[in-house]
Amino acid sequence: MNTDAITLTIDGKKIEARRGDTILEAADRAGVYVPRLCWMKDLLPAGGCRVCTVRVNGRPQAACTQPVAPGMVIENDTEELRELRRDLIDMLFVEGNHFCMFCEKSGNCELQALAYRFGITAPKYPYLFPQRGVDASHPDVMIDGNRCVLCGRCVRASRALDGKHVFGFTGRGPGKRLAVNGPNLAATDVAAPDRAVAACPTGTLLVKRVGYKVPVGRRLYDHSPIGSEIEPQTPGK
């Protein structure tokens, strides 16, 4: 019927995928959650956070960038990969300064939600306590660099979805930082409704004067873990 359909296996379960899909897209359609952070719908995948790492015929690959191929055998929810993802999420926590209890994004934050899903209560790595800045120059939008995980979602969204280029990166290695297209945010053409602002998975980009509009307790991940929007509701879950 559909000549573009191919079959592959995720964690022993046969799923159907479309040629041209990435593993992550195919898994989503099949109701299999592959954890991810730098991936966002409507954007080209970056393959940067590596949280979506799966094993394809034994080889580690980022599910968000790897296209499907017929007969692929994919490991996703294995103890090895859960441990690997825990390590990566841990790294993102200690690399920045994440104080969830003071953060407006708490409950809506994908990094925090991933940590909860993976049962991380405290990082096992030592905090690196980097010096990072806050840019509150703009009347409607602010940046708290302490919370940035360098996913690049704002960078890509601004270009691909807003038709602007408000964000970019400077530096390299541990010195890589989110940067804006001007001396500060106020000098850019960013606007509060920009998709780029909403694209931030953490509390790095915040719209001013709307803090706590949705109260704690009614936030995105307050009742069901991240990923449950993809997984079919199974009884007892």
């Binding site: 390590d87 790294m91 690399e95 360098l150 290695g173």
Partner: peptide
């Protein structure tokens, strides 16, 4: 490190 991906950067 270029800093693009988490494991190498951190």
């Amino acid at each position: 490190s270029c800093g693009y991906c988490t494991p190498c950067r951190v």
